[in-house]
């Protein structure tokens, strides 16, 4: 293909997206579009998979059967979301094994939030309320993204996600209305998860490298700062309602803007965790790689069993 021909195709491609047309797997697409989508979608899938670990930690210790079935269902949904996203990413020509390899070798990232520890039951509340809350704000605009398989996967994910946030907030309500110790536990979880949740919405607009191109391809509809403001404005009243305090002394309603002003985010901490120096980075990868390696004989045995069955059937047919 000549350079001019490619340029022509690229222009037509951008025009299709601008007209709100969807791009499907077999359509021609610029290499950069393919690569950017593989990167973002696989990281999204990895986040769902690694995201099971901090919560899986509490399934056997949930305080009641009601809480246990809910948490189990939530973690199972996250496995499902990871699978929707992996299979959507495979339509771009990368194999499942390559993606796992990238995760396990640290080449691919996953959401930094999962590198924090879950040390009390209240963390299950804070994760559902704040982490899933921030994830929903990130994900809802993606239901309209330009790549068809990604958009369809996100519609399913978003439909299922709202129970996650509600179950988390319900845990917080219960603890906040419980004994002084329980309320303190809820406040402590909020204190630890608040800032990492704000960081989840990404670096500030002035340093975010992908924003402009991502806006064009509808991988992003709003800037990181706008999403963060939306998250803060919607979450602060929810904390007020249950008598918990957002751990930010600079948080203040700004009448003029109709939004909350908030304090400085510690971006050094964010970059430290991204670079692998968070409290749980090593532990998460160890758990993930360990599960993959310990499961290898099961995967191989299942494949061998299927082949044996097939051979047997083929023989009978002769």
């Amino acid at each position: 293909m000549s350079e001019e021909h490619i340029k022509n195709l690229e222009e037509q491609f951008e025009a299709r997206i601008a007209r709100d047309e969807k791009i499907e797997p077999k359509d021609w697409m610029p290499e950069k579009y393919r690569k950017t989508h593989i990167r973002q979608m696989s990281q999204h899938a990895h986040s769902e998979i690694v995201g099971m670990l901090p919560e899986g930690n509490w399934i056997t210790r949930a305080p009641s059967l009601r809480r246990k079935v809910a948490l189990l269902a939530k973690v199972q949904d996250e496995a499902g979301h990871g699978l929707y996203l992996y299979s959507a990413t495979e339509t771009l020509g990368i194999s499942r094994d390559e993606m796992y390899e990238q995760l396990h070798t640290g080449k691919a990232k996953y959401s930094s939030i999962f590198n924090y520890p879950t040390i009390t039951w209240a963390d299950m509340g804070a994760i559902g309320w704040l982490v899933d809350g921030a994830a929903i704000i990130n994900q809802v605009p993606l239901c309209n993204t330009s790549y068809g398989p990604y958009a369809r996967a996100m519609i399913r994910v978003c439909k299922e996600e709202s129970f996650h946030q509600r179950q988390g907030y319900e845990i917080m309500i219960k603890l906040a209305n419980g004994t002084p110790e329980q309320k303190e536990m809820a406040q402590d979880a909020l204190n630890r998860w608040w800032w990492p949740s704000l960081m989840m919405l990404g670096p500030t607009d002035d340093v975010s490298v992908h924003t402009e191109q991502s806006m064009k391809w509808k991988l992003k509809r709003k800037s990181n700062d706008d999403l963060r403001q939306q998250f803060i404005d919607q979450t602060v009243p929810q904390a007020d309602l249950i008598g918990l305090t957002i751990p930010d002394p600079d948080l203040k309603w700004n009448e003029e803007r109709g939004s909350y002003d908030f304090g400085e985010i510690d971006w050094d901490e964010f970059w430290q965790v991204v670079k692998g120096h968070g409290p749980m980075n090593k532990e998460r990868m160890k758990a993930r790689v360990g599960a993959w390696e310990r499961g290898e004989w099961v995967r191989d045995a299942a494949m061998a069993y299927a082949e044996k069955n097939k051979n047997r059937k083929d023989k009978q047919a002769v």
Binding site: Q76, S87, M303, N309
Partner: peptide, 18 residues
Amino acid sequence: GSLHATDAEMALENARDV
């Protein structure tokens, strides 16, 4: 959507869960 499975029977069972 799609998924990985060793054979048709496992694909059906996994599809039920996914």
